[in-house]
Design a protein around this nucleic acid. Structure first.
Length: 524
RNA sequence: GCGAGCGUAGCUCAGCUGGUAGAGCACCACCUUGCCAAGGUGGCUGUCGAGAGUUCGAAUCUCUUCGCUCGCUCCA
């Protein structure tokens, strides 16, 4: 069904709704909060769990068919958050996740220190001129202006300079020398210490994992040895990861504690690029299958210079978030890791990680394709995607509903309705039950009986407060797809009305068929 | 970490040049309500982010501090 593309809500609108309705709260709020951390409220928890379960179902238990229509084999894993620190040394995170930064006190610019180069006077005296790697023009111009020649200088990395020489450096965006700070380490991994009596020290330092993937690589051999898996196969894991982001920003988009859904697909080196293409496409389609508008999704292939230290190719699934529009922001990355990780761990641990194919008598170190998505970001996408403002005609229920721009005022004769249009599979509450009137005992009793029955199967909600329309609207705002109302006819003929969230239509359903009706519509 | 902005009820805010806190919405109870929110009556809510100073007196002025938001960097 092609409908008008919705304008995504602003971050304020979304965070407001999330707080007001119990989806997501600022962490440690009563202590003034803590930057980069978020707590999931009752509804946010349900939503996040539903997304996680959908991923697990569609990735581990019932993965998509392969490129030739074959069934794929993917098994699950739940590894520890804290691992032997040698894991992070081998994976490159201890070195590679360590970005030295230098700030310019004058221009307020910040540079990756390892991206800065310097024209250093060979005489050892006088001003040195810094420039961004590959952009020496600025520095060279300044050298000419100082009536000197680049021949009198040698080019060295900024990070190789002794500390006392940094004061002689003229920064790329400064008007004079001496404005750059010395490079400071931004270690993105959270440190902790093992042992109850331990203080800080090198020997008992451990790290909270910055990604779930390494837990998979270090268990690859265990899985091969115990699960009778044959190449190609996958290992999947969902869990928390931690990164000391320099700047957590944009609600839960970039937080310091977040959740990932990662799958490592191990395959023969010769088939790696085939599988890479397959997974990029499969992952894009998966997000679409959750009801995400394809017009808000796109594939973006990484340029070579932005590839992470471990990958030889990478494509992102990007989403048009409210705060990035009209641009896009990352949701999932599908990386071709080659055999980097297994090679590293094989060397560092001394344990052979080759796969032996009994049929062909061949030993290979598998290559890895990694679809890694952010569960936390996925929740943000679902909220963005679901958030809808509509103008509905006042009074009767017949007139046409109009799609509204978030934050706009309803025209004469209309009123605004805020509704989260989650697919029923993902909605935190599946069904709400109301007695038409709360001061009629028979209605209340029957409604509670039906509620008691439904909650055995689905997350359900009972409400008898206020006017019936108000209760419908409250459920709209948290995305409950169906509301069941018990009225006076229900007492006569044992039927109820089921009200559909999106169309606001009502269906008369016999109570005996209610569960099967809901089952069919929730799992469609 | 650097720069800018902000911090008064659950939410959105008012409170001008200092005199000891207010409005709408929300929420709760009861009434009303025979299907799409805001009809009636009543009710709850505040260490005015925190600390210190000036003053007879500070939400309001000064300093310090904490936190949040935005930009620089990074990434699921």
């Amino acid at each position: 069904m092609q409908t008008d593309k919705k304008t995504p809500p602003s971050l304020e609108t979304l965070t407001g709704l999330c707080k007001r309705r119990g989806f997501i709260f600022q962490s440690s709020e009563i202590y003034n909060g803590l930057n980069g951390f978020w707590d999931f409220g009752p509804l946010g928890t349900e939503l996040k769990n539903n997304l996680r379960d959908a991923w697990w179902q569609d990735m581990v238990r019932n993965p998509p068919l392969g490129p030739d229509g074959e069934m794929l084999d993917i098994v699950g894993l739940d590894s520890a958050i804290i691992q032997n620190p040698l894991v992070w040394k081998a994976s490159g995170h201890l070195g590679g996740f360590n970005d030295p930064m230098a700030d310019c006190r004058e221009s307020k610019a910040r540079y990756r220190a390892d991206h800065l180069m310097v024209y250093l006077p060979t005489s050892g005296e006088g001003t040195a001129y810094a420039f961004l790697e590959g952009e020496p023009a600025v520095a060279e111009k300044r050298i000419r202006k100082a009536k000197s020649d680049t021949a009198n200088f040698s080019v060295v990395p900024f990070t190789d300079l002794p500390l006392d020489q940094i004061a002689t450096v003229w920064g790329p965006d400064a008007t004079k020398a001496g404005t750059l700070t010395e490079p400071r380490q931004f270690n993105l991994m959270f440190k902790t210490f093992i042992g109850a009596m331990s203080g800080e020290g090198e020997d008992n330092t451990a790290y909270l994992r910055p990604e779930t993937a390494q837990g998979i690589f270090i268990n690859y051999k265990n899985v091969v040895d115990t699960m009778r898996v044959k190449l190609p196969f996958g290992i999947a894991q969902v869990g928390k990861s931690f990164r000391n982001e320099v700047t957590p920003r944009n609600f839960i988009f970039r937080s310091r504690e977040f959740e990932q859904m990662e799958m490592e697909w191990f395959c023969h080196p010769d088939e790696a690029s085939k599988w890479y293409s397959f997974w990029v496409e499969a992952r894009l389609q998966w997000w679409a299958s959750l009801g995400v508008d394809m017009r808000n999704l796109r594939r973006r292939d990484h340029d070579e210079d932005e590839l992470a230290h471990y990958s030889t190719a990478c494509a992102d699934v990007e989403y048009q978030y409210g705060f990035t529009a009209p641009g896009f922001g990352e949701l999932e990355g599908i990386a071709h890791r080659g055999n980097f990780d297994l090679t590293q761990h094989q060397e560092a641990s001394g344990v052979k990680l080759e796969y032996f194919n009994q049929e062909t008598n061949e030993r290979v170190l598998p290559h890895v394709i990694e679809p890694a998505s952010g569960l936390t970001r996925g929740v943000l996408v679902l909220l963005n995607e679901a958030y809808t403002e509509e103008f509905v005609p006042k009074g009767d229920t017949g007139g046409d509903t109009l799609l509204a721009e978030p934050g706009s005022e309803a025209p004469e004769g209309y009123e605004k309705r805020i509704v989260l249009k989650f697919s029923p599979r993902l909605a935190p509450i599946k069904v709400a039950v109301f007695p038409l009137l709360k001061n009629r005992e028979e209605l209340v009793k029957k409604a509670k009986d039906i509620f008691a029955e439904l909650r055995k199967t689905w997350p359900a909600f009972y409400d008898q407060a206020g006017a019936i329309g108000r209760r419908y609207r409250r459920q709209d705002e948290i995305g409950t797809p169906f509301c069941v109302t018990i009225d006076f006819d229900s007492l006569e003929d044992d039927t109820v009305t089921v009200r559909d969230r999106d169309s606001m239509r009502q269906y008369r359903i016999p109570v005996s068929e209610l569960k099967s009706w809901l089952f069919e519509h929730i799992n469609e």
